[in-house]
């Protein structure tokens, strides 16, 4: 290793140092602490620092937490599937059919996501409510006789609202993957007699897979940690694990249990993400 490289390495480390130290102090240390914390117990007002698995036993065995964990995962997976399925045609449209003003389209897609998340979620409540925009419109048009009630304060509302909230994050990675596809491959498939559907299944979809997997993970992971949408539009059946974590850190005053729930949720979503990532690697990326 020559002197020049040493100096280069030193300069690089010096420059990245402050940011890396900040991340270590503000992220690595806290993450380590929350894991440690989850092995402690809340003893009325004090924290008992004896290491124990009690919180994890509670988190994984008591029905309420188990129900919430499973439900959160199911809702997150449904939200992710709906969001990605709705987003794919848009990404496809942008990549293959929009020729002029592509940046403008991309900009228009991102604008709604830079508006207040809270207010956006609340507006869905206004749209879906008993006297909401949708019901009023449908009643006025004479399409329904009584307001629809299955669209608010349940899982449907959570799925719809989150599919809206994460749309741009699903569209962009798929779009990027589609843009990278060499168009001559498509022509080759066509020349070799593939119809549009076959061509899509054999060329476009496998090559878009990294983007689809990226979009899936970008939507799935944060959705598991959301408590605003379940609280505002979910009603009781739409409550998710993040709501319980918030309750444990707040009103219930059992932060160690909250920490154990948070770590458990992370593990669950981590394992599911890994499975999705590996599945995506196995089934996509190659042209067959």
């Amino acid at each position: 290793m020559g002197l020049k490289l040493d100096r280069e390495a030193r300069s690089g480390l010096l420059l990245v140092g402050p940011t890396a130290i900040y991340a270590a102090l503000m992220l690595a240390a806290p993450l380590f602490m929350i894991v440690t914390f989850s092995f402690w117990t809340q003893n009325y007002l004090d924290i008992d620092r004896t290491l124990t698995l009690a919180n994890y036993r509670t988190a994984w065995s008591e029905p309420i937490y188990r129900v919430l964990m499973v439900r959160s995962l199911v809702i997150s997976l449904i939200v992710t599937a709906v969001t990605v399925l709705l987003a794919f045609p848009i990404a496809y449209f942008l990549s293959f059919h929009v020729t002029r003003r592509k940046p403008l389209w991309l900009f228009l897609i991102t604008v709604p996501f830079w508006t207040s998340y809270l207010i956006r979620v609340f507006l869905w409540k206004v749209i879906l409510g008993f006297n909401g925009v949708l019901n009023t419109a449908l009643l006025d048009l004479g399409l329904i006789d009584a307001p629809l009630t299955f669209i608010l304060y349940n899982t449907n509302a959570v799925v719809l609202t989150l599919a809206h909230a994460w749309a741009a994050f699903a569209i962009l990675p798929i779009f990027v993957a589609l843009e990278k596809i060499d168009r001559s491959l498509l022509e080759a498939a066509e020349d070799l007699g593939d119809g549009p559907l076959r061509r899509f299944l054999r060329i476009t979809l496998p090559l878009a897979m990294p983007g689809v997997v990226g979009a899936t993970l970008i939507v799935l992971i944060p959705t598991m940690g959301d408590f605003i949408t379940p609280r505002l539009v979910g009603g009781t059946e739409g409550m998710m694990i993040a709501n319980m974590i918030q309750v444990q850190f707040g009103r219930a005053n059992n932060a160690p249990l909250g920490a154990a729930l948070a770590v458990s949720a992370m593990l669950v979503v981590g394992v599911v993400s890994l499975v999705i990532y590996l599945a995506g690697r196995k089934f996509g990326g190659r042209v067959r």
Binding site: M26, L27, A29, P30, L31, M33, I34, F37, I221, P222, M224, G225, D226, F227, A242, I245, Q246, F249, A255, G258, A259, A262, A265, M266, V269
Partner: peptide, 12 residues
Amino acid sequence: PEIIVAVALLVP
């Protein structure tokens, strides 16, 4: 997930 970042910072 943001809630993880939030509670991880809250604990210390």
